[in-house]
Design a protein around this nucleic acid. Structure first.
Length: 806
RNA sequence: GCCCGAGUGGUGAAAUUGGCAGACACGCUAGAUUCAGGUUCUAGUGGGAGUUUAUCCCUUAGGGGUUCAAAUCCCCUCUCGGGCACCA
């Protein structure tokens, strides 16, 4: 037999699959609903570096799962496309003058070829790229629907500005005060922005998480990001005026301990309530606060600052007069922009009160008594110094006082979220143009749906202006247009949409990617959605995954999709690290190029190696040595064919049992995405088959089928050697015979005082007494119990006997 | 600072409900085969003691606890990774 020539084999089957459209999927109604599933990968951004070894990790996992499900009689939608708008192509354009479209489509070609070299079973007829006009036409269409429902609006608030990318960013794109993409320090800039009202969906985004089979850590990140808190809004009157300052608090039970009040420097009432003699000081403070960057303002361990306004507020629960201060530790963007300060029970207030010598009154106590406090006590306890509420436990007090405030008309129950609206415009070129014009007479006007797509015009320079205008602003003959409403003079919106826009709904488009009448046909949407299994990196926890859920819920509300959630089951693949255990990067010089590995070992080996490395979810370092283990395994399988493979060969009971056990284990493991241990089991089977002189043909067929999802190329070739018709993909997945895996004898453990003393093979189903007798007569056991009294005998049926002796 | 998650041989890792720790691989050692080998095959391989056979002791980051029995459950500490950043 010739040697395992993966280059020839892989080329042959790649061409075969292409030519025969082996992976094409249709909306075949003969599949019952529960046999239609949608398995999706997070589509890649086609960067100029080509595919990274991290990409095929998730792709291989879903490919194995898809092939497995297809062989089990499922119709599986498994598509691939490209997240093709984005900054790298645009930055390259700025450097070289190459049109971002040229770079992008060239990179897509390369990516597609690389992805195909892995033999993934994508239906390539459904491929899409978010920068195609017939795709972004529908991205723009969705934006128009958001606009019509009042969920897209223009605002002029200070936003996160990246001085290197020269564009505004969403809150979700800022990490540690730095740009998520380029690590530059974020500045604050006030420019006119398109915002999406994601906050309108906060409660549903939070609540529906319970419907999802996602990693708890990802769900928790979304929970924290949405940041729901429950408390009360309380009205404080400004002494001597009719002005009311509303504060939000999660601890209304500490109202009696409020010794002062703090407004954010930007609070609208500051100007009005500040007294004459404090005016200068307050103005100076506000000027300083406004000019400080967000980072400076929120800097860790920064000493508290603030000034007294000269005004006083009246505490509604006890009519006590408390001073009103302003300080930058109160944020205008959260709650009401004003707080009641309870230094005894809030760390920040305690710090502030200590610095400015403001009174500290304890109102919560661990034991119901007053005592000296060295720091703020924020835990729940028993109320003291709180009038008629003394003695109440925190939770009860909260309810009572909130009710009391409501009865008095001085407050009410309130809920707040940390989630902010989504800053949706970017001051860059390579993105979807907004289908919006600004008319001198009519104001902001949406384009007619028939006018879509509004295509990106050609520009002379891709360079962002840096002034908050995108490069589109310079193309006057594109910018100047007529208003669709009044035909008067109008200017086009020159911002573009963020990269997240296209990825918010691509999974919908895959169900019907060539449709030019709708974003996808209803029938196809109903046939496939929601996505049953979604696999990708965890870095999108609060970005793509939150945005897409928001759009999906909106599309549900307007009747476009039929489910409330887009991705039912989500699994995150870990990172593949360099051999030194560090993140792979050019600068660290530890990058492994998948093309090189395929050239040296073949795609089957690379696929299996990445799966064998460890559990899908964890980070795993690459090891150039251990890939040989998988390579040897495949060669071992190949060499099984040097043995006579015949129908009449009797299989040993032992190997027959192992075969059926392997079917069971591999089936369960693939279903649970535990590929590393599934592969181990296949190795055990092959090691054992290799010891046989001759091999039974049915066993061989079973092995080829079990191996197929992991190593599609070699298995197609071996299937052909077995004189079978391609493709293995169309074969039925093997089923194990439960009667064959029952052990009639078992290894029983004998231990004394919990320590293993012997293992013996006994028949299945012995009674407790019989097992104990076996143990008591066991030589090694006797040695350890001699001269001692048996205090206790524990028996676990068919497993162990433990004797406790003294 | 707060909230999650993880920590098992020289290495990647495995281990239903608490029930033989280290499956499967890599590497290493020895032997066989081959003109040759990053080939193939066989045996060994957590640490220690031991008459190198029997056998015994120790071992899942560290410490304590629950239990007949703990990698697995509980508490504390340490280390690493991730998220949040004055959110009242």
């Amino acid at each position: 037999m010739e040697e395992y020539n993966f280059k020839v084999i892989e080329k042959k089957w790649r061409e075969f699959w292409d030519k025969n459209k082996t992976f094409k999927v249709t909306e075949d109604l003969s599949f019952p609903e529960e046999k239609r599933i949608y398995v999706l990968d997070m589509f890649p951004y086609p960067s100029g570096n080509g595919l990274h070894v991290g990409h095929p990790e998730g792709y291989t996992a879903t490919d194995i799962f898809t092939r497995f499900k297809r062989m089990n009689g499922f119709n599986v939608l498994h598509p691939m496309g490209f997240d093709a708008f984005g900054l790298p192509a645009e930055n390259y354009a700025i450097q070289t003058g190459t049109h971002p479209a040229d770079t992008t489509y060239k990179n897509i070609e390369k990516f597609r070829e690389q992805i195909k070299s892995f033999g993934f079973c994508y239906d390539w007829d459904r491929e899409l790229a978010t920068c195609d006009a017939d795709y972004y036409k529908w991205t723009q269409w969705i934006f128009l629907q958001l606009f019509k429902k009042g969920l897209a609006y223009e605002d002029n608030v200070p936003i996160n500005w990246c001085p290197k990318c020269l564009t505004g960013l969403a809150n979700e794109e800022v990490k540690d005060g730095k740009c998520d993409r380029c690590d530059s320090l974020i500045e604050r800039k006030k420019i006119k922005q398109w915002m999406l009202k994601i906050t309108a969906y906060a409660e549903r985004l939070l609540d529906d998480l319970k419907l999802l089979d996602w990693n708890d850590s990802i769900k928790l990140m979304q929970v924290n990001w949405i940041g729901k808190s429950e408390g009360a809004e309380v009205d404080f009157t400004v002494e001597g005026t009719k002005n009311i300052i509303k504060v939000y608090t999660t601890r209304p039970d500490t109202l009696f301990g409020a010794t002062y009040m703090v407004l954010a420097p930007e609070h609208p009432l500051v100007e009005e309530i500040t007294t004459q003699e404090k005016r200068n000081e307050v103005r100076k403070y506000i000027d300083k606060a406004v000019n400080e960057s967000d980072l400076q303002r929120t800097e860790l361990n920064k000493e508290k600052t603030g000034v007294f306004t000269g005004a006083y507020a009246i505490n509604p629960v006890n009519n006590v007069k408390i001073p009103i201060w302003i300080s930058d530790y109160v944020l205008i963007s959260y709650g009401t922009g004003a707080i009641m300060a309870v230094p005894a029970h809030d760390t920040r207030d305690f710090e502030f009160a200590t610095k400015f010598k403001l009174p500290i009154i304890q109102v919560v106590s661990k034991d119901g008594k007053k005592y000296e406090m060295k720091e703020a006590e924020i835990e729940d306890g028993i109320a003291i110094n709180s009038g008629q509420f003394d003695g109440l436990k925190t939770a009860e007090f909260k309810n009572k006082i909130t009710q009391w405030l409501e009865n008095q008309g001085k407050g009410k129950k309130a809920i707040n979220y940390k989630l902010r609206d989504w800053v949706f415009s970017r001051q860059r070129y390579w993105g979807e143009p907004f289908p919006i014009v600004h008319c001198e007479k009519c104001g902001v006007v949406a384009l007619d749906e028939k006018a879509l797509p509004l295509t990106l015009p050609e520009v002379e320079s891709y360079k962002p202006t840096g002034t908050g205008d995108s490069p589109l602003a310079l193309i006057t003959d594109w910018v100047n247009t007529v208003c669709p409403k009044c035909n008067g003079k109008a200017k086009r919106e020159t911002n573009t949409m963020p990269q997240w826009a296209g990825s918010c709904w691509y999974y919908i488009r895959f169900t019907d990617s060539k449709n030019d009448r709708a974003l996808a046909d209803n029938k196809n949407i109903e046939y496939w959605l929601p996505v049953d299994l979604y696999v990708g990196g965890a870095e999108h926890a609060v970005l793509h995954l939150l945005y897409a859920r928001f759009w999906h819920k909106f599309l549900y509300d307007i009747g476009v999709v039929n489910t409330v959630e887009p991705f039912m089951k989500l699994r995150n693949q870990g990172m593949i690290l360099g051999e030194n255990g560090e993140k792979m990067s050019k600068s660290r010089g530890n990058v492994i190029n998948p093309d090189d590995v395929i050239d040296e070992h073949g795609a089957d080996t690379l696929r299996m190696y990445e799966m064998f490395l460890g559990p899908l979810a964890v980070d795993k370092p690459w090891n150039t040595q251990s890939i040989y283990g998988v390579r040897r395994f495949l060669e071992k399988v190949w060499r099984l064919f040097e043995k006579p493979i015949e129908e009449r060969v009797e299989i040993s009971d032992e190997n027959d049992k192992l075969l059926h056990k392997t079917i069971k284990i591999v089936t369960e493991k693939i279903d649970n995405l535990e590929f590393n241990t599934a592969i181990s089991q296949l190795m055990i089977l092959v090691n054992s088959m290799q010891k046989e002189e001759k091999i039974n043909i049915d066993s061989m067929k079973t092995l080829v089928k079990l191996l197929h999802p992991f190593a599609p190329f070699i298995t197609e070739e071996l299937w052909e050697k077995l004189k079978q018709k391609p493709s293995v993909l169309f074969e039925k997945w093997p089923v194990f015979d439960p009667s064959k895996i029952i052990d009639d004898s078992l290894t029983i453990v004998f231990s004394v005082n919990g320590k293993l003393r012997d293992t013996v093979i006994l028949t299945k189903g012995l009674s407790d007494e019989e097992l104990i007798n076996h143990a008591l007569n066991n030589e090694k056991v006797i040695k350890h119990i001699e001269g001692k009294t048996i205090v206790k005998k524990i028996v676990v049926k068919d497993k162990l006997v433990n004797l406790v002796v003294k």
